[in-house]
Design a protein around this nucleic acid. Structure first.
Lengths: 158, 158
DNA sequence: AAAGATTGATCCTTCAATCTTC
DNA sequence: GAAGATTGAAGGATCAATCTTT
């Protein structure tokens, strides 16, 4: 049993730990509020894209916009279709492709869900002043700048 | 929320959206790095508690420390035990209770995993100065102050 | 062969129901 | 009956393999 790892990590971890907790807090609040409408964050993401598209979208396109695996979309749409919130329609030109479309019920649920999400988000941000929101956004942007540019020197982490 | 609904809405969402993305970024990096050791963030959380405990912990106690459902621990420990990283031992005084204990292999994997996590975390924070880290932590704390005190006036969100 | 979608396996998480022990 | 743990069902996500169409 060698010496306890971390210690130097304590300082760093605390910032990232807060970040994780904050992310989960937002997630949990949204999930809980959407559950009242029989919705979830994952379902709302699909409904959102479909509503913004003002028409049908290929399943692969949905996967791309939500940056997730195509098989994930297959199952998500399965559940949404079982609830009649979304409909699968054959793609016009290409018989390989399948498009997803909002139903009337789906559009109504989306409206309700979007209103709920906006309320939860506004609620969470009441603790921060306008200046603080700007400052937080800026700091997160600097952290996120990492996303497309993994540091050059040495292997990232192994 | 009395002024310009659309604009403030977009503004709020962008801060929260960044928060979610940042949270996922951290998660994904940790998950990818730990995968090289056959570990995951969830498994590391269990290993961490067991290592800190310097002995055996009841499964219910683990669920409490990780603030998750007890059934989650059951399955997590199932998988860890299948890999011989953790061992289930009968609790001394109470025949209802079962304790989990790190094996030697488990302790070794934990050491490797902890080192990897520390590296990933340090790596992610290189983009922020010491001052920025402090500022970010403070802002997140204010956001988190919401956690145990859901605003009193009016129904939270429905 | 490559693109689009699905299926099957696995992991992570929760809830409700169950079983044993207290 | 209540506490501790497990099981079963389900949502959510990923990857590898498969099937159809291009």
């Amino acid at each position: 049993m060698q010496s306890v790892p971390e210690l130097t990590g304590a300082h760093e971890a605390s910032v990232l730990a807060r970040l994780e907790r904050a992310g989960h807090l937002v997630d949990d609040r949204l999930e809980a509020a959407l559950a009242d409408h029989g919705l979830s964050v994952a379902k709302m993401a699909v409904l959102n894209e479909l509503a913004r598209a003002e028409g049908a979208l290929p399943l692969g396109g949905l996967a791309e916009r939500l940056t997730c695996a195509r098989s994930n979309i297959t199952q998500l749409v399965d559940r949404l279709e079982a609830e009649s919130l979304v409909r699968r329609v054959p793609a016009p030109g290409d018989r390989r492709s399948i498009h997803a479309q909002l139903t009337e019920a789906g559009r109504e649920r989306w409206v309700a869900g979007a209103a709920t999400m906006a309320r939860v988000e506004a609620d969470l941000l009441t603790r921060l002043s306008a200046d603080e929101r700007v400052a937080l956004a800026a700091l997160l942007d600097r952290l996120l700048s990492n996303e497309l540019a993994p540091p050059p020197p040495g292997p990232p982490a192994r």
